[in-house]
Amino acid sequence: MTTYIMLLNWTDMGIRNVRESPKRLDLARKQLADMGGVFKELYLTMGDHDMVAICEAPDDAVAARFALQMGMGGNVRSRTLKAFPESAYREVIASLG
C-alpha cells in the first residue's frame, strides 16, 4: 500500500465542535478501512496545521476519495502528500544516472 501524509486544519465548524473530534476520527478510520486503507497515526500539532495523519491506501484514487469524503463533512480541510519510503527514494535517486 502507498503511504499518504495528510495535513489537516479544522474549519470554523470543526473547531466549534472540537469536542466531537474523537468521534469523527473514529468514523474516518472506519471509512478508510472500508475502502481498503488504514489510518496509521494521528498527531495533534502546533503551527501551520492542527493535525497530521499518516494513512495508507491501495492507490491514489482511494486516497483522493477519502480526502474528499473528509472534506465533505465540513469539519476539516486537508492537504495530502504522497510519501515515498526510503527504498523508493534511493531507487529514484539512483535512476538519475
Rank of each mutant, 00 (worst) to 15 (best):
L68W: 07
V52T: 14
A61H: 07
G74V: 01
Q69A: 15
T80G: 03
D60A: 11
Q69S: 15
R19S: 11
L25A: 13
L81Y: 02
K30F: 07
L32F: 13
I5D: 01
M1E: 07
R29N: 11
C55G: 05
A33M: 11
A94D: 11
A83T: 01
Y89M: 02
T3E: 12
A64I: 12
A83D: 02
N9P: 05
G37C: 12
Y4I: 04
D50T: 03
S95G: 11
E86N: 08
I54E: 11
L68H: 14
K82V: 08
A67N: 09
I15F: 05
M46Y: 08
Y4R: 02
Y4D: 04
E86Q: 12
V52P: 02
D50K: 04
T11Q: 05
Q69P: 05
M6N: 05
P85G: 05
A28G: 04
A67M: 11
G71S: 03
G73N: 06
S95C: 00
L81S: 02
E86M: 15
P22T: 12
P58L: 07
G47W: 00
Y4C: 02
R90Q: 12
A63E: 14
L81F: 06
Y89D: 00
K23H: 03
R24D: 06
D59H: 13
M72V: 01
A64S: 07
L32I: 15
D26N: 13
M35L: 14
Y89C: 02
I5H: 05
Y89I: 06
S95A: 13
E56S: 09
W10R: 01
P22D: 13
N9E: 05
G74E: 10
G71R: 07
M72F: 11
L27R: 15
D26K: 11
G37T: 09
A28K: 02
Y4Q: 07
V62K: 12
H49F: 11
M51S: 13
I5R: 00
E56F: 03
I54C: 04
V18L: 09
S87A: 13
T3L: 09
V38W: 10
L81V: 13
R16F: 04
A94I: 03
R79S: 10
H49Y: 08
T11S: 10
Y4T: 03
A63W: 04
D26C: 01
E86C: 02
V52D: 10
L96P: 01
I54Q: 08
T2Q: 15
D26G: 15
K30L: 14
K40R: 14
V92F: 14
G36D: 12
F84G: 01
L25T: 14
A57R: 08
T2V: 07
E41S: 06
L96F: 11
M70I: 05
I5M: 13
F66T: 08
N9L: 00
E86W: 08
T11Y: 09
M46P: 03
A33D: 15
L68E: 13
P85D: 15
P58H: 03
A63K: 04
F39V: 06
M6V: 12
M6W: 12
L81E: 06
R16D: 10
S21W: 13
S78C: 10
R90M: 08
D26R: 09
T45C: 10
